[in-house]
Simulated scan of single mutants.
Amino acid sequence: MPQPDISGNSPDFQADPYSFYAGLRAAGPVHPVGVSASAYEPGWIVVGHEEARQALNHPDLSKDWSSSLPDVARTAANLNMLESDPPRHTRLRRLVAREFTARRVEALRPRVQQVTDELIDAMAARPQRTADLVEAVAFPLPMTVICELLGVPDLDRARFSYWSKEVVAPSGDTPATRAHSELSLYLAELVASKAKEPGEDLLSALIRTRDEDGDSLSPDELIGMAFLLLIAGHETTVHLVANGVRALLAHPAQLADLRADWDGLLDGAVEEMLRYDGPVQNATFRYARRDVELGGTTIPAGATVLVSLAAADRDPGRFPDPDAFDIRRAPQGHLAFGHGLHFCLGAPLARMEGRIAIRGLLERLPGLAEDPDAGPPAWIGGSLMRGVTRLPVRW
């Protein structure tokens, strides 16, 4: 088999990565990719579900890239849980979990509902009865929620929108590191401001928090945590909503069933959206500390490893008829939010936002459909996220 290109920049790959992954998976759960020895590019990809679960929680697959890229300077934004291993990861997650609780997330429900209603009100009032669903609802909803949660001033949210997009999928119009650097500098100023004048937001709470031993997050760790919460807490929900609506509109019989039984089917439908076409296509890189065996294949020490969540969640060994969208499926065990140590801390918030937004859109706009005159989808570049940059709809 030829070495596959998993850059995500091929139009055919962007339109249908799942067929590509299925071809790989048919030949085995773990494969070498490319010929570069650079730690900037993956040397191996994991496409089987069980092997992906193992890789996501494997102690010898490190998320701390500092030893693999010793010549690359770390910034404060890199001092976050996602780019850390135990014991540092354990410490950071414990401190954040003290404040980012289920109770705090649940307290956001009325505000999430209010923001959703206001965005759909504005969308429904458009006389032409057309809109870009990403621009109208899917993007501003999680942006508003995560900025309010962190205590980001209103006037800064336009800049946050630009930085978030550029960090996840650089456009190429500016140096790839510019948005990362600008966002880091802004967050440093925000943390300093919150330290002087704390509020009731999550960032202020993280500044105040102490564990039983008196440990707390350093200023740089606060910047890293804010960086992670902003990017992970925003971009994933954008594409959960947009991909979920796209899947339902493409399956009108299931859409009708969902509209007839919101209470019975909505939660399961959102889980199936996450499995079927989840927002995170591939996990961020891992680095083999030593030789690692997965699925009968040995990944050599020093290799860069990409775990494909999208491929794992279409594995027929775990999900029967995996390419079928079925809101009555029991998709427990999907890997859309990861697995193990790095399971997404914000999963409950993303699920809440997704359920509220999708129900609101489909209840308020009963004739919602993709705009047939809009042309082919405009896919996000790269191989990290899975989604469209715009979703023209009419009703």
Rank of each mutant, 00 (worst) to 15 (best):
W44I: 05
K194P: 00
A188Y: 04
R390L: 10
A22Q: 07
R88E: 06
M1D: 12
V137Q: 01
I231R: 01
G233P: 03
P140R: 03
H234W: 11
P366S: 13
P153L: 15
T209G: 06
L69H: 12
T304A: 01
G296L: 11
E271N: 07
P140E: 15
A136E: 05
G295E: 01
G224T: 13
R74T: 13
F285V: 06
S308N: 03
G295R: 00
D313V: 05
Y162F: 11
R318H: 09
E51Q: 05
H49I: 15
N78P: 10
L309M: 06
R91A: 06
L108K: 02
D263K: 11
P110Q: 13
H49V: 04
D154I: 13
D132R: 04
D277Q: 08
M143E: 02
D156P: 02
L202S: 01
P198C: 08
R159N: 07
A136P: 05
E197G: 06
R386P: 02
D213G: 14
G28H: 05
D373Y: 13
R328Y: 10
I356D: 05
L217H: 00
N9H: 11
S216A: 13
G381T: 06
P127H: 14
I231P: 02
S383F: 06
K196W: 06
M123T: 11
P331Y: 02
L265Y: 14
R314D: 10
